[in-house]
């Protein structure tokens, strides 16, 4: 008797969550998969009663679309560049931070600051730092102020570079994005790796000290293996986040996703949103499924690699 009353109550307490999840999480998974296979699905037309045929046209269109290759290339490039750079930097910072006494907590707090920011807002600050006021692509270039980064590089005799303005080269745009994304990704990675370091048993280090092992060797042979589960974790979450890169680019370049709104830095997620807003929901769904498949594959590869390398 008590038990059945209990069950009834359990479902009552669960009902708000289950209703919301059913409508806004479970149904969308099924429906988005369905939309991906409805040829040229358009939401507005669907609401007006149009019926769509089943087929693979959406996927064909996504893959054939020239801009999609750019999106895929940009997304992969950003991942491949930012994940290793930010992981290695975070590891060095965490190890250094773990080995000092005074100022540790203070520095740790400072390093965490980029996490509690609005990626659009700070993207605009980075844009201001790299921005050249004037017309740098004119002949001869008209530079009112070159921006603080160019000023800094000027100290080493580097000519002002057109980082983000109209006519700027792809590598310069990419450099700005890599700098911004790494800056933004460090706090989380430092936090996790430092947490890992603090839970490492001190005995290993004492033993190494007795043996007179060099610092570099300690790092390679003790710290990294013991930290490998955390490293695997930040690499995997880094890749997942990297494949969904979007708002940091909007922060620096605006919705045009590139200098002069030329979409040169468009990403997979950017493509999905543009298709969605352009009333090509079928194509957006197909692209979202492709993105999901890529993330799943990369995560599985990462897990497979870490299974061989990670020492638990």
């Amino acid at each position: 008797m008590v038990d059945s009353k209990h069950k009834w109550k359990a479902w009552l307490y669960l009902s708000p969550a289950l209703v919301l999840l059913a409508i806004f999480t479970i149904y969308p998974i099924i429906n988005t998969i369905r939309l991906a296979f409805l040829e040229d699905y358009n939401m507005m037309a669907a609401i007006n009663g149009k019926v769509f045929e089943f087929g693979f046209k959406n996927f064909e269109k996504v893959v054939a679309y020239r801009g999609f290759t750019t999106c895929l290339k940009n997304t992969v490039l950003l991942c491949v560049l930012t994940v290793p750079i930010s992981t290695i930097l975070a590891l060095l910072i965490a190890v250094a931070l773990n080995s000092i006494g005074p100022l540790r907590r203070f520095l740790q707090t400072i390093y965490f600051l980029p996490y509690v920011t609005n990626s659009i807002a700070i993207g605009m600050v980075f844009a201001a730092m790299f921005n050249v006021v004037g017309n740098i692509s004119a002949e001869p270039p008209l530079i009112v102020t070159a921006g603080i980064i160019n000023n800094f590089l000027g100290l080493f005799g580097v000519e002002p570079i057109n980082w983000i303005n109209v006519g700027s080269p792809y590598w310069a745009n990419m450099t700005v994005m890599v700098v911004y994304i790494v800056w933004n990704a460090l706090p989380f990675k430092i936090l996790i790796l430092l947490g890992g370091l603090q839970s490492v048993n001190k005995q290993y280090y004492d033993a190494a000290k007795v043996d007179g092992t060099s610092r570099a060797r300690v790092l390679r042979k003790i710290t990294i293996p013991l930290l490998s589960p955390m490293i695997a974790y930040v690499v995997i979450t880094g890749f997942i986040g990297g494949f969904k890169e979007y708002s940091s680019i909007v922060g620096v370049f605006g919705e045009g996703m590139g200098p002069g709104d030329n979409l040169a830095l468009n990403t997979m997620v950017g493509y999905i949103y543009q298709s969605l807003e352009g009333q090509h929901q079928g194509r957006a769904s197909a692209a979202a499924l492709i993105l999901f498949a890529i993330i799943l594959a990369v995560t599985l590869i990462n897990l497979q690699v870490s299974k061989k390398r990670v020492h638990y």
Binding site: P28, L35, K244, V269, I272, A284, A288, F292
Partner: peptide, 8 residues
């Protein structure tokens, strides 16, 4: 990924 939900 959240984008999948967003579309529907």
């Amino acid at each position: 990924p959240g984008e999948l939900f967003t579309i529907t």
